[in-house]
Amino acid sequence: MTTTQRIPPGAEPAAVPAALDREVARGEGGRTMPPPSAARRRASRRNTLAALGFISPWLIGFAIFTAWPIGYSLYLSFTDYDGISPAQLTGFENYERLVDDPRVGQSLLNTLIYTALYVPSHIGVALVLAMLLQRAGRSAGFFRTLFFLPKMTPAVAVGVLFLLLFNGQDGLINEALGSIGIQGPYWTTDPAWVKPGLVLMSLWSIGSAVIILLAALQNVPRELTESATIDGANLWQQTTRITLPMISPALFFLAVVNTIAGFQTFTEAYTAFFGAGGDSFQSDAALFYVIYLFRQAFEFFNMGYASALAWVLFLVIMVVTAIQFVVSKRLVYYEGGQK
């Protein structure tokens, strides 16, 4: 039996104790009660306002620096705008031009190839390093820091480093390959090797993926692998049947964020191949979509067209991410038995 107190007629709602209010809301016999009292609504509104007040700096920043530019770029994508003169509405002209522009197809293809190389290599190497770290014992902390440190290197510096390390004549990579009798390619100038070179260079900053996967690996219940060992499962079987399914949410997360990062790749390639600008040599093999977008916006001042390019990229990423989520339903295991 529920003990209840009656609210005296005419009592001020604000004076009603919160505990009493909760009891009233629960009602006699656990029945659902009518709408909450005015006091509760006020308290709730106050709480909401307080919460909004606390997060208002972020909300204001988001509105000014993210939401407004996103919305404005959608408007600009339907205009002819050079950054100075007033924007002139041109309907779907920018999107029609985009279809006919061969450089859009070329840069999109470059980006797709890069992403297709980047995502599996990034996750694969990170997984191997994370598994090694898990077995590193006391020195794991040291190596974890060591792997993460390159992540702190500015992307522009990585771009310059790429040119030095991967120089086809006397770069460190080819020197190393040469020491074991392999003639390294011209990574920075041969179109066939530019993208693989950039992908290899991107492994420089793999630290955060290693940390994420290490955390996931450490959450795999040890009793599962111990049971499997007792049952005679070898390391490969344990890895493929237990470890990978158990860390599949982390792998899926990395697949999604790295795919988006792959589509948006810019700084390293721009620094390495397009930073000199003007009439210097620029490898078409490194002309990624966002670099082409940047060129249209800030070299040619075609801000309207660049905005249309940005929105198409957004849609492409949306579609690819949606496909990944659909596929993940069959491949990703979440604790609680859902697959």
Binding site: P191, D279, F281, R295, E299
Partner: peptide, 19 residues
């Protein structure tokens, strides 16, 4: 001028790359 320079430079880059 920027587009003109970029266009002839891209053309030559394509030739240099063997494309």
């Amino acid at each position: 001028d920027a587009e003109f320079t970029r266009i002839w430079t891209d053309a030559i880059n394509g030739v240099l790359a063997g494309d």
